[in-house]
Amino acid sequence: MLRVSALAFGYDLNIAGIGDPSIAIGVPGGNHLLALVDATMAGSPDGITDSQRAIIDELGPESLVDAASVFGNFEMMNRVAEGTGISIPAQAIDRMKDTIDKLGIDSLQKS
């Protein structure tokens, strides 16, 4: 859905940025959003503050709330997926093969 939504907004998405946040991802504020996720997962107060400030400056205060809530939502979804063992349908994996290859995440597939 990231590729499709980037197209819908006319962004020149570089999907490799998801795997390597040092790469410009091509979506407004996108690298600040990546930095917030990383800083939060690292438990880095300075990193959180810096990325928050950048998000507020570039995208507005409401966007920081959205970023935090989406992060929380996927903390939950990932745990439901791992705990219950629900897997992505094979046809969806086929559809995303290009992205999977670019990010090198084929090893994360579980049965």
Binding site: F9, L59, D66, Q109
Partner: peptide, 22 residues
């Protein structure tokens, strides 16, 4: 607030960091 592409950047990076493919 965020648009869909920006939302999916957060969701994708979170899942990748959690090593969750879903």
């Amino acid at each position: 607030g965020l648009n869909r592409a920006q939302i999916e950047i957060v969701s994708s990076r979170t899942s990748l960091r959690n090593k969750c493919f879903y």
